[in-house]
């Protein structure tokens, strides 16, 4: 298993699958650019060897954004060095990969806050403000002025 919990078959063999996935990503990226249509390649269902996976990661590289999410376990999302091509890796139990895809999109859906969560957050914040003791303000005022 690799450091990032990738449980492969232990084979370094490169079967050519990485190249096939890259061609598919290139086709989807053109479609995003030309028609604004998003797409994805599900990596988990492909019989990739560890060698294939390493080759794919190497070829796509890392871009400007990396995010770690704590949501029902850990997820890691990063933009590859190709803008609009994201690697989304979801971990399940024991930090093993439960789902993994290359998302071809402006922003992966999992990073976007859902309206229902925003609604709940707005009301929670309002409640917090209403119930918070005025202690914070007095502490701050002690530091203001000479």
């Amino acid at each position: 298993m690799s450091a990032d919990g990738v449980a492969g078959c232990g084979l370094r063999l490169r079967t050519g699958l990485a190249k096939a996935v890259l061609s598919e990503v290139a086709r989807l990226l053109e479609r995003l650019s030309d028609a604004g249509e998003t797409g994805a390649v599900d990596l988990h269902s492909l019989p990739m060897t560890d060698g294939d996976r390493a080759e794919l990661e190497e070829r796509l590289g890392r871009g400007e954004i990396e995010a770690t999410l704590s949501v029902a376990g850990v997820s890691r999302v990063w933009e590859t060095r190709y803008a609009g091509v994201w690697w989304v890796r979801h971990f399940g139990s024991d930090e093993r990969i439960a789902a993994e895809e290359i998302a071809i999109t402006h922003v992966p859906q999992i990073l976007v806050a859902h309206p229902a969560d925003i609604r709940a957050a707005a009301s929670a914040l309002r409640d917090d403000l209403a119930t918070q003791p005025p202690q914070g303000a007095s502490e701050e005022s002690r530091h203001v002025g000479p």
Binding site: A40, A99, E101, Q109
Partner: peptide, 24 residues
């Protein structure tokens, strides 16, 4: 449990069932 968690679970299910990733 946030909607993000539900989305993550759905992505996991979509992967399991070989549904198009957009189905999640």
């Amino acid at each position: 449990i946030s909607r993000r968690a539900l989305l993550k679970y759905s992505s996991y299910l979509a992967t399991l069932m070989a549904l198009p990733p957009a189905a999640s």
